[in-house]
Design a protein around this nucleic acid. Structure first.
Length: 573
DNA sequence: GCCGTTTTCGGCCCGACTGTTTTCAGTCG
C-alpha cells in the first residue's frame, strides 16, 4: 500500500476510535471507518490519483467533507479535527480498544472513572482490583481484562497463513472424525488466503447428538476456553491462536460459509443488495419475510442476489461485486495450472537437498520443469556460487537431464543486485543460463530513490528475466524496503521481465495489490516456491492464493506455460 | 458522514455469547 494512503487511513481510523469513545453517532463513526478501508486498500497512490484528475468524491464512502480532510492531510500533513479530538481524549486511550473484551463504552468508563490511559495502567488497575467496582463491571470482567491485557502485551496477534493452515487443518481433521459430523470447513480470512490470519473460523454441520462442541473445547491443543454455547465456541490454542467454532444446520451451510468467510466489507455489500431486493441476508440464509429463498450453498445465495459465485480470494469489496454483475470476474489461476517452478535452491548454496532430490520432489508435485537458482557469490552466508562453481553446476544439470524422466531441469541463478544496481556475475556467465532471477538481499535501508534506481538498473540488464521477491519484506519480521513499485512495474513491462510472487510462507511477495497492478500494466508474474528443501513445494499453494487475491488468471502467470512456450519467452522471442 | 430510480431526509448489516443485570448492554465477528 502506498505510504500516504496508509497514513490517511490511519488518521481516519484514529478519528473513528476517538469518536467511538466519545459516544458519537455510530453512523458517523462508520463513515470514517469506511473511508479508511477504501483509502487503505486503494492500490493507487492518492497523489497520483489527484494528478490524474480523479475526484476524491468518486471513491466510495468519500463525500465533500472527507475529501476536504484528505486534501488537508496531503497538503499539511495534519488534520485539525484529529488535533481537536486529541485535546478532548488522550491519544493513548485508543490503544485500550485493541484489548479483546474492551469496546468504546468500557474504555470510556475506564478512562473517565479511573483515568486509565495505557495498557500498562489498565493491567495495574485490574491487578489491584479497582475495576470490579465500576458500574457494569464485575470480578469476572476484571479477570478477563487482566488476562487479555497480559496477552496483548506478550503476543503478536496475527499468524502466517501457513501456520494457520497447519493448526486449522489439524482441528478440521479432528472434527471430521467425530461420529455424526457431516461437513467441516475453515472459513474466515484463511479461506480468503490472506497472508496473515488473525483467528480461525471453523464451520461444522452435524447431527444434533454429535458431541462437536465438547470435543472441540477438549482438543489437546486448547489452552483456554473463552466461550462455549450450543452453536458457538471460542478457544485459544497453546500457540496463542484463537479458533472460533460454529455449528450450523445443513440448510444454512452456504449462508453461514458465506457469512463467516467474509470479508466484512463484502458481506455488508451483499446485505445491501439483499435489502434492495426486499430480502434479508444473515448466517442462516436469505429470506423474504419468513420464507427462505436460499442458503444451502453459497452459489444459491449469490444466484438469488443476481450474481455468479465469487471466489473467496476476491471477497474484499474491491470491485468483485461490480465485476460479478458485469460478468467480468476473472477465471483465477489454480495450483493445477502451474507447469513449473522457476526459483529453487540446492545444497550448492543454502538448500538442504541435491538437485536430483529437488527435481524429483518438483515432479511429485506435478510439475514439468523446474529451475535451479542458487545464490550468487556475494551472498557468502548462503555459500553463493562464483562463475566456476556455476559452470560446473550447469554441466551437472545437463547430465541430470539425460537420465531424469518426467521433468526438465533448467539452469539458473538468483543473482545479487549490488548496491549500484549492477549484478554479482558477469554478463558472459549469465548468458549461459536458461533463466536469470535478480534479487536484493542487502542494503535494505537505501532511500526510496536510490533503492528504486538500483532495481530499475538491474531490470535493464538484458539477461535478467525475473525479479525475485520484489519488496523484500518478511511477514511479521521485516518491513518491505522502500521502492516505487509503480515505476518497477512499468520498467518490467518495458524490459519484458516477469515479477515474482515468491510463495515462501515468510515472504508472499509480490503483495496482492501489486499483482493487480502488474496485471493492469500487462506484466507477467511467476509464482515460485523459493524451495530450500523438498518439502517447500507445499508453499506453492499459498503463492497461488496470493496471486488469486491479486485477480491473476492463468494467462497472467509465466509458469503456467508449457516448457516450449516458456523457453521461447525466456529467449525474449 | 455518506448516499440517492424511495435524492436534500432518513435511512445506514445482523445475530450469539457473556456478565451483570433483574430485562439488557457491551462486545465480537
Amino acid at each position: 500500500m502506498p505510504l500516504v494512503n496508509a497514513s490517511v487511513a490511519a488518521i481516519f481510523e484514529e478519528i473513528a476510535d476517538l469518536l467511538d469513545i466519545q459516544g458519537a453517532n455510530p453512523f458517523r463513526i462508520r463513515a470514517y471507518r469506511n473511508a479508511a478501508q477504501t483509502i487503505g486498500t486503494l492500490g493507487t497512490d492518492l497523489r497520483t490519483l489527484l494528478e490524474r484528475g480523479t475526484e476524491l468524491t468518486d471513491l466510495p464512502g468519500i463525500g465533500d467533507d472527507l475529501a476536504a480532510k484528505v486534501r488537508e492531510i496531503l497538503d499539511t500533513g495534519k488534520c485539525r479535527m484529529l488535533e481537536k479530538l486529541h485535546r478532548q481524549v488522550p491519544p493513548a486511550v485508543t490503544e485500550l480498544l485493541r484489548i479483546p473484551g474492551l469496546g468504546p463504552k468500557r474504555v470510556r468508563t475506564l478512562w473517565q472513572e479511573l483515568d486509565l490511559n495505557t495498557v500498562e495502567q489498565l493491567l495495574r488497575a485490574a491487578k489491584d482490583g479497582r475495576i470490579r467496582g465500576l458500574h457494569g463491571f464485575g470480578p469476572r470482567t476484571e479477570a478477563k481484562i487482566l488476562a487479555s491485557a497480559q496477552g496483548y502485551l506478550s503476543a503478536s496477534k496475527r499468524h502466517k497463513l501457513s501456520v494457520a493452515a497447519r493448526y486449522g487443518e489439524q482441528i478440521a481433521a479432528c472434527l471430521r472424525s467425530i461420529a455424526g459430523v457431516v461437513q467441516v470447513e475453515i472459513a474466515g480470512s484463511f479461506r480468503r488466503m490472506r497472508e496473515t490470519v488473525g483467528d480461525l473460523d471453523v464451520l461444522v454441520v452435524a447431527r444434533p447428538d454429535a458431541p462437536v462442541m465438547d470435543r472441540f473445547v477438549k482438543h489437546e491443543g486448547v489452552r483456554e476456553v473463552v466461550a462455549s454455547g450450543p452453536t458457538r465456541g471460542t478457544v485459544i490454542l497453546r500457540s496463542g491462536m484463537q479458533v472460533d467454532l460454529r455449528v450450523v444446520p445443513e440448510e444454512s451451510f452456504g449462508a453461514a460459509l458465506l457469512y463467516f468467510t467474509g470479508s466484512k466489507a463484502h458481506n455488508i455489500a451483499l446485505r445491501r443488495i439483499a435489502r434492495e431486493k426486499d430480502l434479508k441476508l444473515n448466517e442462516y440464509g436469505l429470506f423474504r419475510g419468513r420464507e427462505t429463498v436460499a442458503g444451502k450453498s453459497e452459489g444459491s445465495v449469490y444466484k438469488a442476489l443476481g450474481l455468479p459465485w465469487i471466489p473467496p480470494e476476491l471477497r474484499e469489496d474491491h470491485g468483485e461485486i461490480e465485476a460479478a454483475r458485469a460478468g467480468t470476474l476473472p477465471r483465477l489461476v489454480t495450483l493445477a495450472d502451474l507447469k513449473g517452478d522457476l526459483h529453487m535452491h540446492s545444497r550448492a548454496s543454502d538448500g538442504h537437498a541435491s538437485i536430483g532430490e529437488m527435481a524429483q520432489a518438483a515432479r511429485e508435485h506435478g510439475l514439468e520443469y523446474c529451475a535451479v537458482t542458487d545464490h550468487s557469490r556475494r551472498l557468502t552466508v548462503a555459500h553463493g556460487l562464483d562463475s566456476e562453481r556455476l559452470r560446473k553446476q550447469v554441466a551437472e544439470i545437463g547430465r541430470l537431464n539425460e537420465r531424469m524422466e518426467g521433468i526438465t531441469v533448467l539452469s539458473g541463478i538468483e543473482v545479487e543486485i549490488l548496491e549500484d544496481g549492477t549484478l554479482d556475475l558477469p554478463d558472459s556467465v549469465l548468458a549461459t543460463l536458461d533463466v536469470v532471477i535478480a534479487a536484493v538481499h542487502s542494503k535494505f535501508d537505501l532511500s526510496r530513490k536510490r533503492q528504486t534506481e538500483r532495481v530499475l538498473k538491474a531490470l535493464g540488464n538484458p539477461h535478467v528475466r525475473i525479479l525475485a521477491h520484489p519488496t523484500g519484506r518478511l511477514i511479521g519480521e521485516r518491513e518491505p524496503y522502500d521502492v516505487d513499485m509503480q515505476r518497477i512495474i512499468r520498467k518490467a513491462k518495458a524490459e519484458r521481465v516477469a515479477l515474482e510472487v515468491n510463495a515462501h510462507p515468510q515472504r508472499l511477495d509480490l503483495l496482492d495489490v501489486h499483482c493487480r497492478m502488474a496485471k493492469e500494466e500487462g506484466v507477467l508474474v511467476a509464482i515460485n516456491s523459493d524451495a530450500h528443501s523438498s518439502l517447500d513445494f507445499e508453499g506453492l499453494r499459498f503463492g497461488v492464493g496470493q496471486a488469486r487475491r491479486g485477480w491473476l488468471e492463468k494467462k497472467d502467470v509465466l509458469n503456467t506455460r508449457p516448457l516450449a512456450a516458456l523457453k521461447t519467452w525466456l529467449r525474449r522471442a
